[in-house]
């Protein structure tokens, strides 16, 4: 029973953190209709900014979260405005030139970070790292729990923002019909830039949450990009509830898979889910849960 409980808790906590990383991608995908392959690399940039803030300004990652998110919002906004956005609508040989551009950006960003910080693993030990709660034979790593709480708060705030504010509704409207949004007087370009910035900031928040738990190196983002991608497909484009439930499902699937099926299968299960969703539920969970 303790094993089941441990597996469940591990899955839920991890799933919450996956969700915040994925939600940025799902937003951008909703508005721009492209997979942003630079998403993971931008998350990694946020982690390095957090590292610098910790090492040079002594800010705990949970404090550094806010300045890091602001920095990444600005980086995302400018990147979209001056780079990815420019390719939009331009006729090229390859129809998905924006996707390729985001891939190139992701790789370039990684190399720049590698040149600045080397590929050495960077590890920080802020307060609470390695602290545990023991509960009925189960163990909860406290930074996981805090990370999960932060992630769910952000997901809830985002949900509220999208559903209840004019700006949020403009993001949704743009993602559903860009031209119609322009007829409504919405500056769709600016909304797209804003969404990209917001998505990037949320990815950075996900990265920062991971800082007290893991280690950092320039390629750290690879598995998270894939997971975000899976969750985006699983949850459906542009859906916050979808991303949260997708994150939880993936976290739980990985956790139960590695406990009961063998640890080498944990990650495989994510991709099996991905395939099943594409084959049998192409609209994602959004189709089931409404919005």
């Amino acid at each position: 029973m303790a094993l089941f409980g441990q597996t469940f808790i591990t899955g839920v906590l991890m799933g919450g953190i996956y969700a915040i990383i994925a939600i940025g991608m799902t937003l951008v995908m909703g508005v721009m209709k492209i997979i942003n392959l630079a998403h993971g690399a931008l998350m990694m940039v946020g982690m390095y900014i957090c590292l610098v803030l910790f090492e040079h300004a002594g800010l705990h990652p949970y404090v550094a979260l806010i300045p890091t998110m602001i920095a990444l919002f600005i980086i995302g906004y400018l990147l979209q405005k001056y780079s990815i956005g420019r390719v939009s609508g331009v006729e090229t040989i390859i129809p998905e030139s924006q996707v390729l551009l985001t891939l190139a950006l992701g790789l370039a960003i990684t190399e720049v970070i590698r040149v600045i910080f080397t590929s050495n693993y960077q590890i920080i030990h802020p307060a609470l790292t390695g602290e545990y709660w023991h509960l009925a034979g189960m163990t909860i790593e406290i930074p996981y729990l805090i990370g999960f709480v932060i992630a769910t708060i952000f997901v809830a705030l985002l949900h509220f923002f999208l559903a209840r504010t004019d700006l949020g509704q403009s993001v949704i409207a743009t993602s559903q019909d860009k031209d119609a949004a322009v007829y409504m007087g919405i500056n769709a370009e600016r909304i797209t830039n804003f969404t990209f910035g917001l998505g990037t900031a949320l990815a950075a928040a996900g990265g920062v949450i991971l800082m007290p738990l893991f280690y950092l190196y320039p390629h750290v983002w690879h598995p998270y990009l894939m997971k975000a991608f899976v969750i985006t497909i699983l949850g459906g484009m542009g859906s916050t509830v979808g991303a949260l439930s997708g994150g939880l499902i993936l976290g739980l699937a990985e956790s139960f898979g590695s406990t009961y099926w063998g640890p080498q299968w944990g990650e495989v299960i994510g991709f099996i889910i991905f395939l099943l969703i594409l084959l049998f539920l192409p609209g994602g969970l959004k189709r089931i849960i409404g919005r």
């Binding site: 004019d166 509704q169 019909d177 031209d179 119609a180 007087g185 919405i186």
Partner: peptide, 24 residues
């Protein structure tokens, strides 16, 4: 105000949300 051909409503938004989008 441009009421485009094919209506171009925001299909997943509610009637109210669509109306709100008209007043930005």
């Amino acid at each position: 105000a441009h009421i485009p051909e094919g209506r171009r409503l925001f299909p997943e938004m509610t009637v109210k949300q669509n109306l709100v989008m008209g007043s930005m």
